[in-house]
Amino acid sequence: MTKKHLEIKGLKKYYGSFPAVRGVDLELARGEVVVIMGPSGCGKSTVIRSINRLVEPTAGEIYFDGIPVHSLKPEQLAPLRRRIGFVFQNFNLIQRLTALENVMLGLVYAGLDKKVARRLAEEALAKVGLLSAADKLPREMSGGQQQRIGIARALAFQPELMLWDEPTASLDPILVREVLDVMEELVRSTGTTMLIVTHEVPFALRVADRILLMAEGKVIEEGAPAEIFQAPTSEVGRKYLEIINSEAKDVAEISRRILQPRRSEGKLLPQAGECIESA
């Protein structure tokens, strides 16, 4: 943990008269993995989308690597966004482009030579185990594969910050695992700062350095995973604890996993078409 990689101060967002985010403060150190959790509609996605201004904040300040993102002009946003990878809940793939082209798209428009872009894209696809599906169109792939393409597209830039907006929310449980495994491996294998919005509590417990619980547009609890779930102070925290208990997860196992080193060597992710074992 070094200096502040991302800093959000007093972020507010109104949709019309509805206050989606009501003053969120957040700091991420370089290389830190922070998970935001909370019930639907609590403003998690709005916060994460505000960071690269996919959503225009109503008020507040956002600094990325010291850059005041909140005050950038539209034409200054594009270079910034290339430094921030974003994975969408609904994959957001370009339907007319192949998997490879989807990954190449940002690279090419960033000014890279097409050949270079292609190589980088193929590397990214390889990382998510979908190089063999490079020429497929999104509609020819499963949801999990599509999301992995989305992850590859975000990774292709080798971003300094990865923003994950509920990447598994649109997937069935089997495909969730496929995507979570990829994400987990990425967390372990890269030193990228990550801000993840998810409902996947076990995943969060496994990967998060810090967890933020949000409710009604505010951060209601913040801390290390163990702190949060062992003695939750908020109603939301207690509900998450119930979920954990109901899934009969062993606290020790959880602790073990928490204490397990996050980064490991070797093959991390299954290749496309490989069977994924249930945990």
Binding site: A78, P79, R81, I94, Q95, L105, Y109
Partner: peptide, 21 residues
């Protein structure tokens, strides 16, 4: 498709490029 537009934006495409591509 709004999702494609957001994707374009998130990838750092200019609006001109988004419109064109």
């Amino acid at each position: 498709s709004e999702t494609e537009l957001l994707a374009g934006l998130s990838l750092g495409l200019r609006k001109t490029d988004i419109m064109r591509e």
